[in-house]
Amino acid sequence: MVNETLAQFGDWTYGATVLVYVLAMALALLEQAFSRAETKRVAARKLATVGAPSVNAPSGDEPLEPAIGLRPRDERDKWERYGRMGAALMILGAALHFSSLVLRGLAVGRVPWGNMYEYMSAVCLVAVVTWVVLMRKFPVRRLSVFVMLPIVILMFLGGTLLYSEAAPLQPALRSYWIIIHVAAAIIASGLFLVPGVASILYLIRNRYDQDQAKFVRLGTRLPAADVLDRVAYRTTIIAFPIFTFGVICGGIWAEAAWGRFWGWDPKETVAFIAWVVYAAYLHSRATAGWRGRRAAWINILGFSATVFNLFFVNLVTVGLHSYANG
């Protein structure tokens, strides 16, 4: 029933993925820590924006090339080269990561997200891919270390404490809805990780902008606050409809499996809370006095609810979703 060889290869690939990610994170750390602080261009942009009326401020309308592309090759310091190597390793890691999930799926003959280990692995893959895509669109490569840190921690926890042997699904999970509902939950959770991290960095950068004595070292090494805000917002508006879709698919599945589409099971409750919090985030960005810092806090709160839903609800409370543990 379970192809042990493939499962074994899947586990080895998983281990290799974690190693590559750690290496990528180390290289990203070097870039973050030692490459030149705030580039001239970003500093100039900041000056230009100060005092300009916000109504038609062309904030970020011109494409923001990564600062690195603007300087001749010899000026790039070696730390930036490390950063680029780190980014390349992330892509390699993502490819390994993907194959580990494919191998696990082939080994058990089902979707590779039937327990918490597999689920977390898939969430991390989505987060890594999201970040790789964002690095191409926004000048954020030197933030990779902050994104890789939670991913590496989650991968490590998944591979050790929460590891489960390859096994077939229990009857309750055998439905095509596991493909749709859980995939939507995975994609949304993986996407939500990025705005969560970006919002934390936004708060740090914002604090530094207000008082140059705070976060002196880190503040200068972060992109402008509005870049971080846009990274968070753009990712959240993609994740939120997917999350909504996932919750609704969960309802349809629950109707078929448990006799009701909504029953305030702990998982459902916390998903509801996270949904309401992210809805509040979207509204806050359209409300005077709530943009910026408060919106960032709300986004962090939303991601906390997502993490809480994964760990606390699966491991501590007893509910209908408890099979997800193991």
Binding site: F272, I273, V277, A280, H283, S284, A286, T287
Partner: peptide, 20 residues
């Protein structure tokens, strides 16, 4: 909108005891 936001937070907060 401000009130709606606060009510949304209250809703999230009020739902929490049901999970705990």
């Amino acid at each position: 909108m401000r009130t709606a936001l606060i009510l949304l937070f209250l809703l999230a907060l009020a739902a929490l005891p049901g999970a705990l």
